[in-house]
Design a protein around this nucleic acid. Structure first.
Length: 495
RNA sequence: GUCCCCGUAGUUCAACGGACAGAAUGCGAGCUUGCGGAGCUCGCGAUCGAGGUUCGAUUCCUCGCGGGGACGCCA
């Protein structure tokens, strides 16, 4: 990776014994990469950041390097420019990461099969899907998993809701009341769960959200895994009985009516992830309404003897539904929601995915279906896809079958494009650590923009350097397609 | 009452503690002989308030204000 090599070189030349951070400057006049090491060293060396930066820049300028073309210092920052030849050389290498020896389980959506999938489930769904894509791309062994709560209290309530609709029992306020309940009248609860599960699977498929494993809570219970975990904890003398219930710390594992809590079953589920299936890291994508549960879960995991660093819980903020300018409480129980299918039908998969994926997971989000529909035509995803079709069009228009890696850049826009392409692996590596998947959409947009500038400045077809320019175009197309694939968005050749 | 998240152009969103806070949309002004104008160029426009830490704060800390969410045997 370009960034890593630069880091090594700068740290060698500067003789700095600290971890160097290299960033892309906001303004291109501040170099291809920039570092703040002078600020960090200032105190230690008792000199001003300015002096240190100038010193480092000077050393970089006078050192022989295959990588660094020039360096300067501005206000304490050290800015470097990469040699064109180095960029070109890097460009010819394929984007590939080494295999990481780490098994990661990404669990997301996991909505109860008590009703259709809502578009709020979609936020976590798209996020988890794209995150898993990125982790896989950077070389991890990734399993995407949906935990199906097909047993326990919610299912019992669903059964009661149907009975209430049949008039066999009185309706309670915790019952599900959506219209969809009516079509289950007269059906066996087992079949209903099966039908709902199949519907959810179908919606997910339409949304392009993929899973490797559907993990059934019911089977977990049938295999008596919660009992085993309970025994395990009892053996470690971590549980106590009081008020007729069994407790782990201040959380109940077994209720006074002898039923297991969700917490115990969840612990068993994670026990299974770590011990039976030997995952090194479990990433759980949860809705923000579960945040109170994070601490308890972390403590529970530790009680099981698992380092809490092995469980990463990502909170996705809730989506508020707006209708007619007012907030509507989205709830399956109240029967008030926009389904995933509705959403996809109204705006299409690509728009829906971009719409959710461009946002950071911890920001709140209002969703107005009417507005979304209206805005979908202006969705940036079209800009990005349009750039892709332009690339396709140039490639097909040109008669050249063979492209040729450029020997030099003819225009600054060519260089910008090359540099942008080379930043993708760095971004992917960053995302695999900070899980900020939305940065991918920003990158895709920027790449499309950079290409548009290139398109404006450089005529490809018919140029004397056509083969070389085509190389750049096809490389860009490949890169953009890679990003769109990671986002689960189509890469049209024509629009 | 306690805890968690959020507050940035009119609107929707960005910004590892870093440089002059970026885009999109909207509004205004331009781009004819060029590979797709779903494009390109220019302009207008924002960090909720008060302290603090720091060479440097949208970012971290404290206190307010506003919005959302969660608060032992629901999941």
């Amino acid at each position: 990776m370009l960034r890593d090599e630069l880091k090594k070189e700068i740290s060698r030349v500067a003789g700095a014994d600290i971890e160097i951070k290299l960033v892309e400057p906001e303004r291109s006049e501040n170099g291809d990469y920039s570092t703040n090491l002078a600020f960090l060293l200032a105190k230690k060396k008792g000199k001003s950041p300015n002096d240190i930066a100038e010193e480092v820049a000077h050393k970089l300028r006078s050192a022989k390097s295959d990588l660094i073309d020039r360096a300067d210092s501005v206000g304490g920052f050290v800015n470097v420019w990469v040699k064109d030849e180095a960029l070109i050389k890097k460009l010819s290498k394929k984007l590939k990461f080494d295999k990481q020896n780490k098994k990661i389980n990404v669990e997301f959506v996991s909505a109860n099969p008590t009703g259709p999938l809502t578009m709020a489930n979609g936020r976590g769904g798209f996020y988890g899907d794209a995150l898993a894509n990125v982790l896989m791309k950077v070389g991890y062994d990734v399993t995407r998993e949906y935990y199906i709560n097909d047993a326990g209290n919610q299912i019992r309530l669903l059964g009661e809701s149907i009975e209430a609709a049949e008039g066999k029992m009185e309706e309670k306020k915790e019952h599900y009341k959506g219209d969809y309940i009516k079509k289950f009248i007269g059906k066996d609860i087992e079949d209903v769960v099966k039908i709902l599960r199949e519907e959810i699977e179908k919606s997910l498929e339409k949304a392009g959200i993929k899973f490797d494993i559907w993990f059934s809570e019911k089977e977990l219970r049938e295999k008596k895994e919660p009992e085993e975990v309970l025994k395990f904890l009892e053996g470690k003398k971590l549980v106590e009985k009081k008020e007729g219930a069994i407790w782990l710390g201040d959380a109940v594992l077994v209720k006074s009516d002898a039923e297991f809590t969700y917490f115990l079953v969840d612990l068993a589920y994670h026990f299974n992830k770590f011990f039976d299936r030997k995952f090194d890291l479990a990433i759980d994508v949860w809705g923000a309404d579960h945040h109170g549960y994070v601490e308890r879960m972390k403590k529970g995991i530790e009680a099981l003897g698992i380092d809490d660093k092995c469980l990463k819980i990502i909170m996705i903020q809730l989506v508020r539904l707006i209708r007619g300018g007012k907030e509507v409480r989205m709830s399956k129980r109240a029967g008030e929601f926009v389904t995933m299918d509705d959403l996809l039908e109204q705006v299409g998969v690509d728009v829906a995915r971009w719409f959710f994926l461009e946002r950071s997971p911890n920001t709140h989000m209002d969703f107005d279906l009417d507005l979304a529909r209206e805005r979908s035509e202006k969705n940036p995803v079209y800009y990005v896809q349009y750039a892709h079709t332009r690339m396709a069009s140039i490639l097909s228009k040109s008669g050249y079958l063979d492209t040729e890696c450029p020997s030099t850049f003819g225009h600054a826009s060519e260089r910008e494009l090359a540099l942008k392409i080379l930043r993708l692996p760095e971004l992917l590596e960053d995302i695999s650590k900070d899980y900020q998947v939305h940065r991918l959409t920003t990158y895709a947009y920027e790449l499309a923009q950079t290409f548009s500038a290139f398109y404006r400045d450089v005529k490809v077809v018919g140029s004397a350097r056509e083969a070389e320019l085509l190389y750049l175009v096809s490389k860009t197309k490949e890169t953009l397609a890679d990003v769109l694939k990671l986002l689960g968005i189509s890469q049209p050749e024509k629009m």
